[in-house]
């Protein structure tokens, strides 16, 4: 009986940690989308890790990151509603692009704790990759429209 309660406690702790991590990831992703809608590109750039994965392309330079966020600013992305959050798996790269570059990027720049935050926006699904490492300042790792 004692073991049962210990197990239950551990499970509750695991679930709460998972929930806290997911909540933090959503907050980070929301912050990026709000920054874009507010045309606060400096903030958006400051949240963005490099190399950054945008669909099938890898953005190494700050100039390209700036170009991406400039292009998506003021498009109403903060109206997007959360669909779900999930941990990445070995096939997650295919959400971005079914290519060697995307697979290699995932292998090199994500780990088993990286979260994918899925949103619904204008009848489309978009996804942001978020690093759960709190010590990292730039935690938005990638962005894509989820292709059918």
């Amino acid at each position: 009986m004692k073991n049962f309660f210990l197990l239950l406690g551990a499970l509750a702790l695991f679930l709460s940690c998972s929930t806290i991590a997911e909540k933090a990831a959503i907050e980070e992703a929301d912050l990026l989308l709000t920054s874009l809608d507010n045309n606060d590109l400096d903030k958006a750039i400051s949240l963005t890790a490099r190399p950054f994965l945008f669909e099938g392309e890898i953005l190494l330079s700050q100039g390209l990151v700036s170009q991406l966020w400039t292009g998506l600013a003021s498009m109403g992305l903060s109206d997007a509603s959360i669909d779900h959050v999930s941990l990445i798996d070995q096939d997650s790269y295919m959400t971005f692009d079914n290519s060697w570059e995307a697979a290699t990027w995932f292998n090199k720049y994500t780990d088993y704790k990286t979260l994918m935050v899925f949103y619904n926006w204008q009848n489309r699904e978009i996804v942001l990759l978020v690093d759960r490492n709190k010590a990292t300042q730039r935690r938005i790792l990638g962005f894509s429209e989820v292709l059918p």
Binding site: F54, E55, G56, E57, I58, L59, L60, S61, L64, Q67, L68, T70, G71, L72, M75, Q122
Partner: peptide, 19 residues
């Protein structure tokens, strides 16, 4: 070429034709 030119073209076209 891919990293700087193609990505540049892709971002320009993708974001200007998002919808």
């Amino acid at each position: 070429l891919r990293r700087y030119m193609v990505t540049d073209f892709y971002i320009s076209v993708r974001t200007s034709h998002w919808l």
